[in-house]
């Protein structure tokens, strides 16, 4: 099986003044294509830090990260940006939509950066917004959408360019249980439909229960990896 993500002996040390904090210590993890993995653990366990390392948003103090077999530590800022643009989609806890762009423009933004023509962009963004249940809300700006709707736009933005990997950091943290459940359904549907790999960091038991693999972190170390067969 092809490894979409491979982390070898990842250590991340943050320096806060004179104090050094080990956010991750010798973390090793491999993720295969089409997996739906949940990183769980208490606050400060290193879930978000690990996601940032995998996504190339931050660099490890030591160790190597491979995406699709390429070691990303050797890439410069521009090459890293290029890799994220074409291979990774992000979903954040705080949605992080661009407030001056409409829902459709937010979704189209990544494709626009990829150089996809206007007609194709429009077609694909319309289809994906329909798929995430936001048909008719394409022209609304983020402040005119509910939290659940904004997170759906964020998911649509993450998947529209069909990346091989989606990294979601606490995607349901700001949502009510109903919206959270719908979002999990949506992500599982996309995972199944497009064989997209998902790595999700969460506290949410609903996601943990439905993930195919549960990776438990504590104090920057992986304490347990549990395979589950209970997702729909």
């Amino acid at each position: 099986m092809k490894h979409v993500v491979k982390c070898e002996n990842i250590t991340k040390i943050f320096e806060q003044g004179l104090i050094k904090v080990n956010a991750l210590t010798d973390v090793n993890i491999s993720v295969e294509a089409g997996e739906f993995i949940c990183l769980s653990g208490p606050s400060g366990s290193g879930k978000s830090t690990l996601l940032n390392m995998i996504g190339g948003l931050d660099t490890p103090t030591s160790g190597e990260v491979y995406i699709d077999g390429d070691e990303i530590d050797t890439l410069n800022r521009s090459q890293l940006a290029d890799m994220r643009l074409h291979k990774i989609g992000f979903v954040f806890q705080a949605y992080n939509l661009i407030p001056v762009l409409s829902a459709q423009e937010n979704v189209e933004m990544v494709m626009q950066m990829q150089g996809i023509d206007k007609h194709t962009r429009h077609q694909r963004s319309s289809a994906i917004l329909k798929e995430v249940g936001l048909e008719g809300l394409e022209d609304r700006k983020p402040p005119e959408l509910s939290g659940g709707q904004q997170q759906r736009v964020a998911v649509a933005r993450a998947i529209v360019s069909q990346p091989s990997l989606i990294l979601a950091d606490e995607p349901t943290a700001n949502l009510d249980s109903n919206s959270a459940s719908n979002l999990i359904d949506l992500m599982l549907h996309i995972n199944k439909q497009h064989n997209t790999t998902f790595i999700i960091s969460t506290h949410d038991p609903m996601i943990m229960q439905r993930a195919r693999k549960l990776v438990k972190l504590h104090d920057g170390q992986i304490t347990d990896i549990i395979s589950q067969n209970n997702h729909v």
């Binding site: 948003l57 290029d82 990544v110």
Partner: peptide, 16 residues
């Protein structure tokens, strides 16, 4: 600041 972080996360190059 968050937006610029987001742009980079989505693949926007620093030059842009």
């Amino acid at each position: 600041t968050r937006e610029f972080g987001l742009f980079q996360a989505l693949g926007q190059k620093p030059g842009f």
